[in-house]
Amino acid sequence: MQSVVVENISKKYVVKKKATEALSDISFHVDKGEIFGIIGPDGAGKTTLFRILTTLLVADAGKAAVDGFDVVKDYKQIRNRAGYMPGKFSLYQDLSVQENLEFFAAIFNTTIQENYGLIKDIYQQIEPFRTRKAGQLSGGMKQKLALSCALIHKPSVLFLDEPTTGVDAVSRKEFWEMLHRLKREGITILVSTPYMDEASLCDRVALIQKGKILSIDTPKGVTKQFRKPLWAVKANEMYRLMMDIKTDPGVESCYPFGQYHHIVFKNPGDDKKRLEEIIQKGHFTNAEINNIEPNIEDCFMALMKE
């Protein structure tokens, strides 16, 4: 069964007579129990999409359904079934941790006890601070409280808008482990993120940029679409190496990737020899050239330029 169906959704914002297309003709579906990642930078349209699916915003064109219910006609049913964690912290700052959670439970006609099993792992980490006002929590604790509140009514679909933005590498790992536990409970999860490396933790991803979907597939499927051989090169002087590689007219792209540069040639063939020549001519030392598999970020950048 499909938890989320999006068909030809478009949304424009008009500010001072200037129209910006936030989403243009987006279509995809999410299966029940799937972790579906919406991967894209700021301004890609991720939040607009989430607001439409959580019935907080009406699209200009197209249709969408959550759990079989139409986002416009049946918005009340969706609100009972969907859990939503907005990108911006939206809990009551002047209520305590426990009061916030009780409030959300009451609104959804349930109690903390009833669904405690679902939030236990997450909530236990902030329970020692249950009398503290939400506004006085640190970023990581706010995030855990917001997730607990989004889960307290045992939603069937969970919408998480950039839950890991600005979060350090360790907390991000922990957060994703939490999402995989929720998946095992049968909850469908739509999660957006600007961090490309998180794509590999999703079952399927949609790469999105400027309101358009660049690609929808499993993470492996996305990287398989990368057609040309990809090379990783490093040497003693990385910045000069990049400049030298970029001046070669045969080079299609050269991007820094941590300790390596990733290179694609316009007309592949003899790639390694050509790179060796550049290194020799520039008198670089400690050079290393490897033929590598592309990652999601390589693919995203290649798709952005198409």
Binding site: P41, D42, A44, T165, G166, M301, M304
Partner: peptide, 20 residues
Amino acid sequence: DEPTGGVDPITRREFWNLIY
């Protein structure tokens, strides 16, 4: 302070060129 948060991957790299 986290100058490249949320930026697309190409812009992020262009930003580092400015830093260099």
